[in-house]
Structure formats: C-alpha cells, structure tokens
C-alpha cells in the first residue's frame, strides 16, 4: 500500500514557488509548496523551531513572529506571500552575546512555565511595544486621540492574543512592564 513514493515528494512547479526571505538578518532561499505556511517553512525547512505550533489556526499566538517588524501569526501566512520580506523569530531576538532585555525580564519574572507559548509571547511583546511607541491605541484606551500610557490593563489587552495554558499571565505582564519602563 505504498503511494507515489519519493517521486511524489516535490510538488510540481505550478504549485510551488521559489521564495527568498530574510530571516533573522540572513537571506534564505527555499523552494516551497505554495501550501506551506510561514510557520511550517521556519520549522520544517529552515530548522528554526523557535516559533511554535499551538493551534495552526490563529487562535493561540504561539507562532507569533515579526514580519517586516510587525507581529503576525505565522500559521496563517503562506510563506510564498512573504517573498522579499523580512522575518524575525524568537531566535533572532537576542544579541550576539546576550539576551535582549525582554528575554532577560521573562526569565527574571518567571514569565513562562512549559515555555511552549513563550517564543510567541516574546515576539508579540516585542511587536506590541513598537505599536505603543507609535502611539497606537487599544480596546482599553480611554481617549483615542492621545497616545496611550502603558498601564497593566493596556498590556493585558494588547497581549490577549497570546494564550498561555500554564497561565504565566501576571508574570508576563510584569516582564513587559519592566522592559517598557527601562527602554
């Protein structure tokens, strides 16, 4: 009962694409089945398993990466669509020799337990802090016309797209608060 075998491995040319994408600062080129999501491209083709698959449907946030600097859920992005763009994953957050302040704060505040949601939390927080510095409002921002202050309520709302079943939420909020305050 064996199927088409190795010959069937690569999907034909019409259904695949050559994709060039900058990942964590390095240009990568791969041929991918058009169906391959950015998440699966990272995990299965580029050996970047930092981004996690928690739901595969945009519902948990574990797969969050930065696409052209903005946080997105990579499980709902076809890799072929990011041709020519740049991606930063959790593997790209740290400096060459040391952790980023956000990562260090996550450790200091014990902002994770099993660690499975953590790469997504980190990338989400990174993107979120940029959104705040751009003055973007959130659902809990009182006055839409003045830049929001990063209260705990703001952090909680803005991080709501990242579920954590271990429920490290209060510590995640603390880590983000500290990172924001010191930057």
């Amino acid at each position: 009962m064996q199927g088409g075998g190795e010959n069937a491995t690569t999907i034909d040319e019409r259904h695949s694409s050559r994709v060039t994408v900058e990942v964590n600062g390095a240009s990568r080129e791969v041929t991918l089945d058009n169906r391959t999501t950015l998440l699966d491209a990272l995990r299965e083709h580029l050996d970047l398993t930092g981004a996690k698959k928690g739901c595969d449907h945009g519902q948990c946030g574990s797969c969050t990466v930065l696409l052209d600097g903005r946080r997105v859920k990579s499980c709902l992005v076809f890799a072929v669509t990011v041709d020519g763009r740049s991606v930063v994953t959790v593997e790209g957050l740290a400096g060459p020799d040391e952790l980023s302040p956000l990562q260090a704060a996550f450790i200091a505040h014990d902002a994770f337990q099993c660690g499975y949601c953590t790469p997504g939390q980190l990338c989400s927080a990174r993107g979120m802090l940029d959104e705040v510095s751009r003055g973007w409002p959130s659902a809990v921002t009182g006055d839409l016309n003045t830049p929001a202050k990063l209260t705990d309520a703001e952090i909680r709302e803005r991080m709501a797209g990242n579920l954590c079943r271990c429920a490290a939420y209060p510590h995640i909020v603390a880590a983000v608060r500290q990172t924001a305050a010191s930057s």
């Binding site: 859920k73 709902l76 989400s124 993107g127 979120m128 921002t141 797209g161």
Partner: peptide
C-alpha cells in the same frame, strides 16, 4: 480594536 488580536489586526 475590539476584534481579534494585535497580530491578527496587523494581518
């Protein structure tokens, strides 16, 4: 702002 999540709104 009341819809989905920060990541999804970016997409």
């Amino acid at each position: 702002l009341a819809a989905a999540s920060g990541q999804l709104r970016n997409m």
